[in-house]
Amino acid sequence: MKRILFTLLSFILVLSLVGCGGNESSTSTETETETTEEKVVIGFVTDTGGLGDQAFNDAVHSGLLKATEEFNYELKIIESKEIGDYADNMRTLLNEGASVIVVAGAPFADSVSQVAAEYPDKYFLSFDSEVDGMDNVSSTLSKEQEAAYVLGAFAGLVSETGIAGYVAGVESPLQERAINGFKAGFLSTRPDGKVIDIYAGTYNDVGKGKEIASTLYDQGADYVATFAGACNLGVFQAATEAGEGKYALGAALGQFDKNPEKIIASQVKTIDLAVYNALAEFSKGEFSSGIVVRGIKEGGVDILYNPDAELVSSIASEEVLNKVEEI
């Protein structure tokens, strides 16, 4: 734990009132001290999906808004167009007065390492990108494979065709962990089954997500899981067009409102809570550098079911749900 100091701007106004009368004199001095606190600026650099991706950028933003309101921070945001913009976008926010930079996504790792070295007196909260050995960087990683495993096990128990699809974003160790976790979970409950996974190669192409999911449904998948940012929205559209008996499995914070009749369950990360907690700590003058890894036990990942209990029960019996709970 590293202790940090915030700068307070204090203004002192001294008013001296002097009164004279007869042979007596008296001097009255009144000192009024007014202290105003300069807001700490938090800078958020989104990945290429931008705000409104209905995925991790929005989840981070949710945590930032809560922290900003509660701890009186000032929030500045730059939405990245290209991965190559990440470092310059961070520099821009730092030069505009940001004390803390918040980013989320594996592709940020190199940029965070570079910029953090250039600004050793600034702080960096990096989610899903691994940066170690720097005093001014805190990396929070998730055990995606744990939630993916449970989601896969659920899919294996409810699948009628024995085939599941998986739409991933951009190739990375994070995505590999999630894919492998889902496959292992599916095969644990459906040993004779098959999982077809396809990378979208992007996190912000709704049309690409729809195209891939349509292909997977055509190949026999009745459940398609997606872990690909804004591409997820295309998967949900494809589930509707695929018709009866075809469903989607979401991500982020659940995304059930994006297709209430087709998204049965989701693998979720509580990244909004992680962002809020890190900034709550910072508001106390504390910063934890290094790497923190959060799984199901730590409350970092989990699966959620569609809030429509009737829909879920029409697909998964109580026995199935109990089996999933025991995993």
Rank of each mutant, 00 (worst) to 15 (best):
S10M: 15
F11C: 14
F11Y: 14
I12V: 15
L13V: 13
G19D: 12
G19N: 12
C20D: 11
N23T: 07
T29N: 06
E30R: 10
E32K: 12
E32C: 08
V40E: 03
V45T: 13
T46M: 07
T48Y: 12
G49P: 12
N57C: 10
V60T: 11
V60Q: 03
A67E: 02
E69W: 09
N72G: 07
E74H: 03
K76S: 01
K76T: 00
K81Y: 02
D85S: 04
Y86R: 01
A87G: 06
E96C: 13
E96W: 02
I101T: 04
G105S: 01
G105H: 04
D110R: 06
V112A: 06
Q114M: 11
A117I: 09
A117L: 07
E118C: 10
Y119E: 04
L125T: 11
S126H: 02
G133M: 09
M134G: 08
S139Y: 08
T140H: 10
L141T: 01
E146S: 05
A148V: 11
L151A: 10
F154C: 10
G156M: 06
G162W: 03
I163F: 12
G165H: 09
E171N: 07
L174D: 09
N180T: 10
F182D: 00
A184E: 07
G185S: 13
V195S: 01
D197C: 15
I198L: 08
V206I: 15
K208F: 08
I212P: 11
S214W: 00
A221G: 13
D222A: 11
Y223P: 13
Y223D: 05
A225E: 10
F227D: 06
F227I: 15
G229H: 08
G229N: 04
G234Y: 07
A239Q: 01
T240K: 15
E241C: 14
A242M: 03
A242D: 07
Y247T: 10
Y247P: 13
L253K: 12
D257T: 15
E261F: 04
E261A: 13
V268N: 00
V268D: 03
L273M: 08
L273A: 14
A274P: 04
L279S: 11
F282S: 08
E286R: 07
E286M: 09
S288Y: 05
G290L: 06
I291H: 13
G300Y: 15
V301N: 06
I303R: 03
P307M: 08
S314L: 01
I315Q: 00
L321R: 03
V324R: 00
